[in-house]
Write a protein that binds this DNA or RNA. Structure first.
Lengths: 176, 176
DNA sequence: TACGTCATGTAAGCTGTTACATGATTTC
DNA sequence: GAAATCATGTAACAGCTTACATGACGTA
């Protein structure tokens, strides 16, 4: 991919699992190339406009595989909503309820998007998945698509759990 | 609290909802005092050792209330485990399974700790909760404790959901 | 020719992490 | 007298965010 394509990718489906701001991408690409993880190939669009398309080197693929197979440290927790509910007794119940309802609405929007993406993965219908499957034994296609879809099903279920929890919290707020 | 007490607090129960490294605490306390949110009172322990105990000013309490009642922006998602499973087809199923089992074990440890803390909150049995309740109408005690316990029940349920998901993922890995 | 998209960059500033550093007091 | 705990700091660095900046190409 080029830096531009990566930027768009991180602003679309990918941001649900990992995000990177545009300003990080170009410096990082250069750094990774310097470290031999990726190799850039300069292409021409028109007469003056150059674009550099990067692909993984063998070393980069090996490093990626190492990363995938290695347990990653869990990031420190910083959950603003839980903190707000912990201190809910300092404000009016209605104020806390408004915050929770806002959160519920946000989760519902995400749930809809994730469900759509999950369905597309199960149908083998996203461009990146199709490219990935092209190099793989057809008998593995179902399994690979199912695993990727399973990732999005976790996002959906976690958000649904959160919505249910927030609704219960509203009940407790009002002395339920 | 003093900076030392805050440090310990963030290294114990509080870190489950919010963490702050020790190196941040003393500079932040000075900054917050400068901004009028907290006021420090210097105490003497022995002859030479001074400790500064901070408490919220009225302005600080107002600012805290404002923060609690205001929807906080959701942080960008960066979930290493989901990313590892998304790319699981690049490694052997057993390698991915090991990562998932490691995650399951970590979650189970946390679940146990959170359950204990939840029970203590429901029984009104933590020092901070008792201090908080002391200034409140006894008829609210039950509700306040229940809300705080509900926060920890969300942590527990989210982790349990995650464990169940990881077990399903292992099944899919092996062609289930 | 104007607007949208393609494509790549830089700079300032904030937050957070890791690590190091120091000295007083209490306890065994 | 040694070790644990109390108590407070600092420095270097990594990572991320926000914002700004520039120019080429396609198309209506």
């Amino acid at each position: 991919m080029t830096g531009y394509e990566l930027t768009q990718f991180f602003e679309s489906a990918a941001k649900w699992v990992w995000t990177a701001p545009q300003s990080q991408i170009y410096p990082l690409l250069r750094q990774m190339e310097k470290n031999g993880l990726i190799a850039g190939e300069v292409q021409l669009r028109g007469e003056k406009l150059k674009r550099t398309s990067y692909s993984l080197t063998e070393e980069g693929l090996a490093e990626l595989r190492r990363w995938i197979a290695e347990p990653q440290p869990e990031p420190p927790t910083r959950d603003a909503l839980l903190l707000q509910v912990l201190f809910a007794d300092l404000v009016e119940p209605e104020e806390c309820e408004a915050v929770l309802r806002n959160h519920i609405a946000e989760q519902r929007v995400k749930i809809r998007l994730w469900r759509e993406h999950e369905a597309r993965l199960l149908a083998g219908d996203t461009p990146l998945l199709r490219e990935r499957l092209a190099h793989r034994d057809p008998k593995d296609h179902q399994r690979i698509g199912a695993l990727k879809a399973h990732v999005f099903s976790e996002l959906v279920r976690a958000a649904e759990q959160r919505v249910a929890w927030a609704e219960e919290a509203i009940g407790i707020l009002h002395g339920g």
